[in-house]
Design a protein around this nucleic acid. Structure first.
Length: 473
DNA sequence: CTGGGGAGGGGGCCC
DNA sequence: TGGGCCCCCTCCCCA
């Protein structure tokens, strides 16, 4: 093919087989050629898929088998990108994936879109498709669904039926529009158009879109044949921002569990071994907080899914975590759940500097570790009372020992320091992170618990900390 | 190596 | 909507 003219982006080409001597000449716009070629290529691939030609990837959705081309899936879905790129060598003969978190019908819509650019959305399937697209990390599909729903809502508002509809902006204050980095290769000539019907509870049904309590684990366990890891890039990003050596953050899932105990006893002392470590931790904390904010800013715009139906056949609304397949009833619970992905720990213990995701966990920790609230002798495990159980202080750690154990151990082994009139009680003061005084320097102490019981409550001052402001000089 | 206990983390749900 | 409680699970330490 000879290039005969160059008009910038829209180059003109002579049709194949035509010489410059032939008249009349037929000219082709390069953009038209590109579109035609892409369309034809996609059509060919779709035809091959339907004829199961060269299909090298199997996807099992609730027992129904779909055949596809791994390169097409790779190019279309972040989930498959991760799945296929983490195979043994990326070139293994057969790759398969199994899904139980959405229905075969929903995956049919997704697959048809991948191979045709036509997204068959309706008021009946939009939530399911959006949920599946979120799982498969297909941002362009999510955006289509979002626009679809928004269009429905516009109509709904006019009909004063907004109560029965989902507003994305309303259901998730932290959502933002994500970048559509793959849209060029995926969108094509989409057939999405404003929905003709209202999207209401009545015509919204999404049984299979509901994800149960343990679906995260189930999904993780069942979704991958070749890759047992998390399906989400965002999840990976969330994990990435959490330094396993950082005592202030834990890892999601199993990593989190693994790191939990490791930091449990090391964090309080090691974090204050010197000023440099304090600075490092604060710096790391700031970076983590910033990354957490970035993470929030890049959340996929999907939050609402229809759960199961109640007795009145009304669907029960649930909120879906953008990082995993977990769904919750309340937005507040989702907000709480998100902390396990972002690593946010806004509640530091002023006594030992350990941080917690929840105030109740901090309070429990403080009462158990620093206030010796447990009426059990630490040595012999016998029940004690506030009278018989003497409080032993070890640094900021406090626990009780019965009189017998105190005598048996002897005061020589347990440095005793009367705490009468003690003002040294560790205070659960939050908000002045890293300023707790000398808990590691403090020696062992034994005290009666009367004053402890009295003043412990007064020392419980709670103030949530915003990490991002801690670094202010 | 194993089982028990302590501690922390997370989900559901009530107020 | 946030706080708080209850329950369950996991991990680590230790005997």
């Amino acid at each position: 093919m000879d290039m005969v003219a160059d008009l910038g982006a829209n180059r003109l080409y002579r049709a194949p087989g035509e010489s410059s001597h032939q008249q009349p000449q037929r000219w082709f716009n390069a953009a038209d050629i590109t579109v035609a070629h892409q369309s034809n290529l996609l059509k060919q691939l779709n035809q091959q898929r339907r004829q199961e030609l060269f299909c090298d990837c199997s996807v099992l959705v609730e027992g129904q088998l779909f055949r596809a081309h791994r390169n097409v899936l790779f190019a279309s879905s972040g989930y498959f990108r991760m799945l296929l790129s983490q195979g043994p060598d990326g070139l293994s003969d057969s790759v398969s994936a199994t899904f139980d978190v959405f229905s075969p019908d929903t995956f049919t819509v997704i697959l048809d879109f991948i191979y045709s650019g036509q997204l068959d959305l309706s008021s009946h399937n939009v939530i399911e498709v959006m949920s599946a697209a979120s799982y498969l990390q297909m941002n362009n599909v999510i955006n289509y669904c979002k626009n679809f729903i928004k269009s429905s809502l516009d109509i709904s508002v006019k009909d004063e039926d907004s109560e029965r509809c989902i507003s994305l902006s309303e259901t998730c204050s932290f959502t933002s529009v994500v970048g559509d980095e793959t849209s060029e290769q995926q969108q094509g000539p989409s057939s999405v158009s404003p929905p003709p019907a209202l999207w209401t509870r009545d015509n919204s049904r999404s049984q299979s879109g509901f994800i149960g309590k343990d679906s995260e684990q189930e999904a993780s366990a069942s979704a991958l044949t070749t890759n047992p890891s998390s399906p989400s890039d965002l999840n990976a990003e969330a994990e990435e921002l959490q330094d396993p050596h950082d005592p202030l953050y834990t890892l999601p899932g199993s990593e989190r569990r693994r790191s939990k105990g490791g930091t449990k006893r090391k964090a309080p002392n090691s974090a204050r071994s010197n000023q440099h470590e304090d600075l490092d931790i604060q710096e790391a904390r700031t970076q983590k907080a910033e990354k957490a904010e970035e993470l929030y800013a890049t959340l996929p715009p999907i939050v609402g899914v229809i759960g199961h139906f109640n007795k009145d056949s009304n669907p029960i609304m649930r909120f879906k975590c953008p990082f995993c397949t977990h769904t919750v009833k309340r937005k507040a619970d989702l907000k709480r759940h998100l902390r396990c992905h972002t690593g946010e720990r806004p509640y530091p213990c002023q006594a030992c500097n350990k941080r917690f995701t929840r105030l109740e966990h901090l309070r429990s920790h403080f009462e158990t570790i620093h206030q010796a609230r447990k009426l059990v002798c630490r040595r012999c495990k016998c029940q004690v009372t506030e009278d018989t159980g003497h409080v032993v202080c070890e640094g900021t750690r406090r626990y009780r020992m019965c009189t017998a154990c105190i005598q048996e151990v002897g005061c020589d082994d347990i440095p005793m320091d009367s705490l009468e009139g003690n003002n040294d009680e560790p205070a659960l003061l939050l908000g002045v992170d890293g300023e707790e005084e000398g808990d590691t320097k403090r020696s062992w102490m034994v005290t009666d618990d009367d004053d402890l019981a009295e003043d412990s409550g007064a020392d419980l001052i709670i103030q949530q900390v915003d990490d991002s402001e801690e670094e202010l000089p």
